[in-house]
């Protein structure tokens, strides 16, 4: 067994990975049928990175993530019903239908928000950690960001600030090799982003992003360090997304062409398949255990979709709520338009 994990942990990790996979497949099919619009960024292929990174976090630790974020929230233990309903634009969605696929969250488990602008959320993760430190709370903050965002100035400023403040942050880079449809390594100064960690005075480690236990170990070391008050760390996980950058309803996405041997290599290292085999080989779980988990996930995701389909649309008056803390800045507009709130 790895570290202090017990059978229930392995099954729960497997359940979350399988949930992400089935959630994403279900969402993709629904999107392609036109059941909801906008965009949908699939995290299929990256399940081990999300779950491995989040599994060592406690409920009150904060996680911020990316546009490819459904998996992050599920990995943190979020409610799939509210996620799916958000994508369907329903009143029961996690942001009442206002945020959509790129901005899902579940605050009850510390999944404080995914972000559609590359790297834009990373400074906020540092500020959340700063607040924890100022209050003397033993909590940590983890920011997912991709290889694309790793090139954004905000990420660099955030890493420097976190180091200056010794803030309890984990910079979790999910390097899936491509930003949008462009191969990142062709446009980056270093082969691995983690090489930049020492420049910001923090340790950086890498992990096989398809091996959930390897990711868990690497992330856990960073979490432990942050909790001990020793400051931030960076963890870079090498992973792969199976799908195109995005499914888009509004604008056409560029066709992605990735080498077949590359695809084959990564498909052969499918994170769920690998973990499943490992669990059986190490006798940490039985076939019956895993089949049981898979059946449970199937049921839960199906129910989430039914919940989303059957939920009421957000009420129109909702559009005026939540831009401001109250309606007073909009009072004049609402009165002149005769909008009853």
């Amino acid at each position: 067994m790895t570290q202090h994990l017990v059978k229930a942990d392995y099954l729960e990790m497997f359940r979350r990975m399988q949930t992400i996979r089935r959630f994403e497949e279900t969402a993709e099919n629904a999107f392609k049928r036109g059941e909801f619009l906008g965009s949908c960024h699939s995290a299929i292929g990256q399940e081990a990175t999300s779950v491995g990174a989040c599994y060592g976090l406690k409920n009150d630790d904060i996680m911020l993530g990316t546009h490819r974020g459904h998996g992050h929230v599920i990995a943190k233990g979020g409610d799939v019903n509210a996620l799916m309903a958000e994508m369907y634009g329903k009143a029961t969605g996690c942001a009442k239908g206002k945020a959509g696929s790129m901005h899902v969250q579940d605050l009850s488990v510390g999944a404080m928000g995914e972000c559609g602008i590359l790297g834009s959320h990373v400074p906020a993760a540092v500020g959340l950690a700063l607040a924890m430190k100022m209050r003397g709370e033993p909590r940590v903050s983890l920011a997912f960001f991709g290889d694309g965002a790793a090139q954004e100035g905000t990420v660099h400023e955030a890493m420097n600030l976190a180091s200056v403040w010794k803030a309890p942050v984990i910079f979790l880079c999910e390097n899936n090799g491509y930003f949008n449809y462009v191969r990142t390594r062709d446009r980056c100064s270093v082969p691995q982003f983690v090489q930049r960690a020492p420049a910001y005075g923090m340790p950086g480690t890498t992990a096989d992003g398809q091996d959930v236990l390897a990711v868990y170990s690497a992330a856990q070391a960073a979490v432990d360090r942050a909790r001990r008050g020793e400051g931030p760390s960076m963890v870079e996980c090498f992973t792969y997304r199976y799908r195109a950058h995005a499914f888009l309803s509004g604008v056409g996405g560029e066709q992605e062409e990735r080498p077949q041997e590359e695809m084959d290599y990564w498909l052969g290292r499918d994170p769920i398949k690998l973990f499943r085999l490992r669990l059986l080989a190490e006798e940490w779980a039985t076939e019956a255990d895993l089949t049981g988990v898979e059946a449970g996930v199937e049921q839960a995701v199906k129910e989430a979709q039914t919940f989303a389909r059957n939920s009421p649309s957000a009420e129109l008056k909702e559009v005026f709520l939540d831009t401001y803390a109250d309606l007073s800045p909009l009072a004049r507009y609402l009165a002149r338009q005769g909008v009853q709130m």
């Binding site: 400074p123 540092v126 500020g127 400023e157 420097n160 600030l161």
Partner: peptide, 25 residues
């Protein structure tokens, strides 16, 4: 403890202030 010294990093400072505010400060 209530005067946080920063480097010159406007985006980082504003973003981390947002995070601290989201945490209730």
């Amino acid at each position: 403890s209530r005067c946080v010294l920063t480097p010159v990093s406007e985006a980082g400072i504003v973003g981390s202030a947002v995070g601290a505010a989201m945490a209730g400060l």
